Simulated scan of single mutants.
Amino acid sequence: ESRDVFNAAAIELNGSIYILYRAMDRANTSTIGLAVSEDGVTIKERLSEPIYAPRADFEAKRGSPTGNSGCEDPRIVHIDDALLMTYTAYDGVHPPAGAVSSISVDDFLARRFEMWSAPFLLTPDGVDDKDLVLLPEKIHENYLLYHRINNRICADLLPDIAAGKRVSRCIEIMAPRHGMWDGSKVGSAAPPIKVGNNWLMIYHGVSRHATYRLGAALLDSSGTSLLARTADPIFEPLEKYEKEGEISNIVFSCGAIVRGDTLFIYYGAADKVIGVATASLAHIIEALS
């Protein structure tokens, strides 16, 4: 991670928040690092080695030895007794693809990271398909997977998460709004959060000036129907480290945690560093009412 750390997922287990972040070395190869926090802000522990690294052909570096490649932008959910991590797999030549790997909660907590399952692709070959996020609950025994085709958020139902099972359709969830802060592109950020019978989705929106901001949307109990969406962003680049970095004017989230009424949003700033922003969950829900 000698070059950059950014775009972090988060999961709370046994009272600790585990932050899985994208780490990039000087050869521009991305791996997944791990930091741990008790209060959601202060880093108590940060491992010196990645917990997940490229293993499959579809994420092995091809082409330029210093081109981007590897395992990018992880999101993680806890379903049954397993942690499922979706991420963008990139070999530097073919279009970015969506992959998944899993590990049991027991193995993760025991730091047996060699037990991550062999990764496989969930998106079609030859299609630029990114921002894969699983709904943290099954819907009628199916997994609901959000992904981004072109400039909009899509979803598809999968009966199981197994090699050979790939998304085959786009149930449109959300599209850009012309002339607004999210008018160029939208994509899922953190896995949706259960609020009552519905789901709160934090998403990123890109303007025509290529500024990345975060917005909030409310989905129905199935996770497939959009009920409401904030007119304005809930978070945008303001600090110097969010406006200046590898790529300017970016806040890009892959993980969020709720404690009481506080929403912790973990994000990459300008593709260079990791930050956390907090907000009142009730205030966000009120803005969507």
Score class of each variant (00 low, 15 high):
V5W: 13
V5C: 14
A10P: 08
N14Q: 15
Y18W: 01
Y18P: 07
T29I: 15
A35C: 09
E38I: 02
G40A: 08
V41I: 09
T42V: 14
L47W: 12
I51V: 12
I51C: 09
R55N: 15
F58T: 04
F58K: 07
A60R: 15
S64E: 01
T66S: 07
G70K: 03
C71G: 05
E72H: 10
H78C: 00
L83K: 08
L83S: 07
Y87P: 02
Y87F: 10
T88Y: 03
Y90V: 02
P96Q: 05
P96Y: 02
G98M: 03
S101Y: 06
S104D: 13
V105Y: 00
R112Q: 14
M115H: 15
W116T: 02
A118E: 15
L121F: 02
L122A: 03
T123F: 03
D125I: 07
D131R: 02
L135K: 04
L135Q: 08
E137S: 14
K138I: 01
H140V: 12
N142L: 13
N142G: 06
N142F: 14
Y143S: 04
L145S: 09
Y146Q: 07
H147T: 12
N150R: 15
N150D: 14
N151C: 09
I153E: 03
I153A: 13
C154F: 01
C154M: 05
L158H: 10
A163N: 07
V167Y: 07
R177V: 11
G179M: 06
D182G: 04
G183R: 04
G183K: 06
K185G: 04
G187F: 08
S188G: 13
A189E: 01
P191D: 05
P191I: 02
P192E: 13
P192M: 10
P192C: 08
I193N: 03
I193P: 04
K194V: 00
K194P: 11
G196Q: 04
N197M: 11
L200N: 11
M201W: 05
Y203V: 02
G205V: 01
G205T: 06
V206Q: 07
S207F: 01
R208V: 10
Y212P: 08
L218I: 07
L219N: 11
L219S: 03
S222W: 01
S225N: 06
L227D: 05
T230N: 15
T230I: 12
A231P: 00
D232P: 00
D232N: 14
F235S: 05
E236G: 12
P237N: 07
L238S: 10
L238D: 11
E244K: 13
N249M: 09
I250S: 11
A256V: 06
A256H: 08
V258S: 09
G260K: 06
G260F: 05
G260Y: 02
I265N: 05
I265H: 05
Y266I: 11
K272N: 09
T278C: 07
T278R: 12
A282M: 10
A287N: 11
S289M: 11
S289V: 15
